[in-house]
Write a protein that binds this DNA or RNA. Structure first.
Lengths: 202, 202
DNA sequence: TGATTTTTGGTATAATTTATTCGAAAAAAT
DNA sequence: ATTTTTTCGAATAAATTATACCAAAAATCA
């Protein structure tokens, strides 16, 4: 393969990225099963068979989309963590950012149902990510204590607790009732509860 | 057919209604093509073949859903028309109500593409309804003039103009970019423009 | 109760859709 | 001009799906 000399990215990679971006939109709208390669091919204005030049199969494309999505989420959350905000605010931002990005992933998950391999794949990612999540929450907690806002003894334990609470918030998204749930309200509710347990009383 | 004596509605009709309601949700989420009878059957917790006891075909069911949707929209709009509000407010409410209900219809339309017969069917309804719309707008205008808020010479012409403007607002919905457009803002923009042309200056 | 009507859903099938392959040709780069 | 990259039409095999039929369950009635 020969690539253009000045730009580090070649055309193929650019095309891949474009396909990925559009595929993520369509997948997240219809879910895995209901999305056809024709849908994607039409949207990127290429022949269906051209997709196989970039990805070896529908599943391969799907996994690439998910992987990219996870990367984006990770970077987004890092940003929140590094922001210089009040600890509670930071916790709230973290959860909201996560849920909002998760909303995209949710629809993938939703229309998977039978497709065992795909579910397994996603579950693997989720588990892997779970560890990272706990670490991140921990950082927020530690910072909160240092700033004299939180009073936490066992960081790991509390971090796991909060992670669990977030999972609870994710549930309705996975289940697919979008319109019904108000994310912010849900988060604030959970936050209020969490804070009463965590906050240092004066 | 023998029906229960006291209630006017029999069970079959109730089931039909239920199927209609659920089918509308699924159709409006995935569009006509991507919705399978299995989807609907599962959602109503019946066997797929049972649906044929209530509707003669997928298309039949689809048309019933649309027809019902149109009925609901019509009734909703009648209510707005009869409300005792400021004319501009009423116009705004009318348009917003229409667009919001239309959001549901939009997705049907969106995933129709090839299916010529279905498109024709919907277009027929749209045309038929268009006349009614003009009549309704006219009523709002007439009332507005009587209340000394509007200054309109040719009601029909202005009504057609407004109807056209509303179509413009519907477009992005038909095109399928939901998240992008803010209905209220769009409506208020159009309204502001419309009012400057219609309002009686003091 | 037993008879009849309503409602359900399993199974079968024919038509359609869809993911994937292959190879050749257009486009771009060298 | 030759090589490399990229595209896509056509073919296919597997899966999905709308629809038809029929028998049995459930509800209603007499």
């Amino acid at each position: 393969m020969v690539m253009s000399s000045d730009t580090g990215v070649n055309k193929k990679d650019a095309n891949r990225e474009n396909i990925l971006k559009i595929a993520q939109e369509i997948f997240s709208k219809y879910g895995y099963k209901k999305t056809t390669l024709d849908d994607i091919a039409n949207a990127v204005r290429k022949g269906k068979s051209s997709l196989y030049y970039y990805f070896s199969s529908k599943e391969d494309l799907f996994q690439a989309v998910i992987l990219k999505e996870v990367e984006i989420l990770k970077r987004e959350l890092e940003k929140v963590i590094l922001r210089n905000t009040d600890p509670v605010e930071k916790l709230r931002d973290y959860i909201l950012t996560k849920l909002n990005t998760y909303r995209g992933l949710a629809n993938f998950y939703h229309a998977l149902e039978n497709d065992v391999t795909a579910i397994e794949f996603i579950d693997n990612i989720k588990n892997k990510y779970n560890q990272e999540e706990i670490r991140m929450i921990k950082r927020i907690l530690i910072e909160g204590v240092r700033k004299n806002a939180f009073d936490v003894k066992d960081f790991t334990l509390v971090a796991i607790g909060i992670t669990t609470a977030i999972k609870g918030l994710e549930m309705p998204l996975s289940a697919g009732d979008y319109g019904t749930v108000n994310l912010e309200t849900g988060v604030d509710n959970i936050l209020k509860i969490l804070c009463y347990g965590i906050m240092k009383r004066n």
